[in-house]
Design a protein around this nucleic acid. Sequence first.
DNA 1: ATTATAAATGAATAACTATTCATTCAGTTT
DNA 2: AAACTGAATGAATAGTTATTCATTTATAAT
Lengths: 207, 207
Amino acid sequence: MSENPRSMPAKTRRRQLIKATIKCIAKNGLSGTTMADVTSKAGLSLGIVNLHFETKEKLLIETLRFISDEYRNGLDKIFFNDKLSVEEKIIAHVSFDFSRAITDRDKLAVWFAFWGETKSRPTYMSICADYIDEIAKNLTSLFSTLKKEGNYTSVDPELVCICYTALSDGLWLDLLLTPKGWDAADAKAVAMHYLATQFPNNFSNIR
Amino acid sequence: MSENPRSMPAKTRRRQLIKATIKCIAKNGLSGTTMADVTSKAGLSLGIVNLHFETKEKLLIETLRFISDEYRNGLDKIFFNDKLSVEEKIIAHVSFDFSRAITDRDKLAVWFAFWGETKSRPTYMSICADYIDEIAKNLTSLFSTLKKEGNYTSVDPELVCICYTALSDGLWLDLLLTPKGWDAADAKAVAMHYLATQFPNNFSNIR
DNA sequence: ATTATAAATGAATAACTATTCATTCAGTTT
DNA sequence: AAACTGAATGAATAGTTATTCATTTATAAT
């Protein structure tokens, strides 16, 4: 089970350290995460973070970038998939939002940890702004297309995008705060319930 | 404008320190908040936190309890106000959720800072669980009553409560992350839009 | 006035943690 | 197989921050 050929490509080591950072933030919070924690969780020596990231702050920034990219890339793959209909893309988007990879509680803890510091750190703020803008643009355009295709005359695509996005963020919080008696499938059902109010011919009775 | 009669009742000093803590967390994040910051923001001496709270951790816990209580008490005042109809109570609940006192960005930053640490701190978790449970119970009962009174046969009050609550948490995140081009009134409109899908006779065209 | 009481102070201490860098080690090249 | 290379190590250092407590100060009691 040993993790350690003495030497590894830099990219591998960096990823290994980011993964360890996610686990440490989930276990001890951002304020309780130390270099000693991270490196020992990774099974490596104390100095290695400074070798690969220079400073703790830069490791944290790369960790935020890692989960942001993972999220953005997952959604892009859906949005730019020519084989899916608009309805299928929206369903895939929701499924992705409540998939194992995204609703992993360790990662959710990391999201909220960074969001809590965002107001005080311009770098965190701008990383968040980037992915938020892109995703909102794409999702709004999906709703807009579905409105036309389905003759939903009174739907406001921008409003629905804002509402859906806020809803899924809030449902993530529920998943983080209520460990028992509630899971990602339940959360997904709530999200679909909202979409069904806007596009009843497409999303009613979906499970 | 001086803040300092040399001596003050303990309760006043504690509140003064909690207020300073909120400002510091908003400005520097939880991990960047030091005793020196807090006490100097309060215009008091370094040792005073330990005098009134014993430890930094206890100050943080009392800070979370402070904003939780403020939120819970505000909503209780609405819920137990006999002069309001059910519809009025729900509208008042939403207005409170997006009022100045609650959507103050300093306080929002504090909420998210604590939520990010919740997974690792059982004490934070249990403080959150308390207010969440009570508020959910009350809000569900409002929706349940409105369902009967308004003959909304297909509404699921528990689902609507979960959905509304997640939505408002998510809208708070939007207010925290997007300082410009978006305000509490806009967020409130989104929340009302959702309620209108469930109770169209009560909440359509409300501003 | 004098004494007693309790709050507040802040310099000193203790504890913790990020960062540095001389050394070790596992490959790779000659 | 000897010399070279660069990743990795971890003891030592430097910096930061929570906590302590002897002293000061304001107010109340006698």
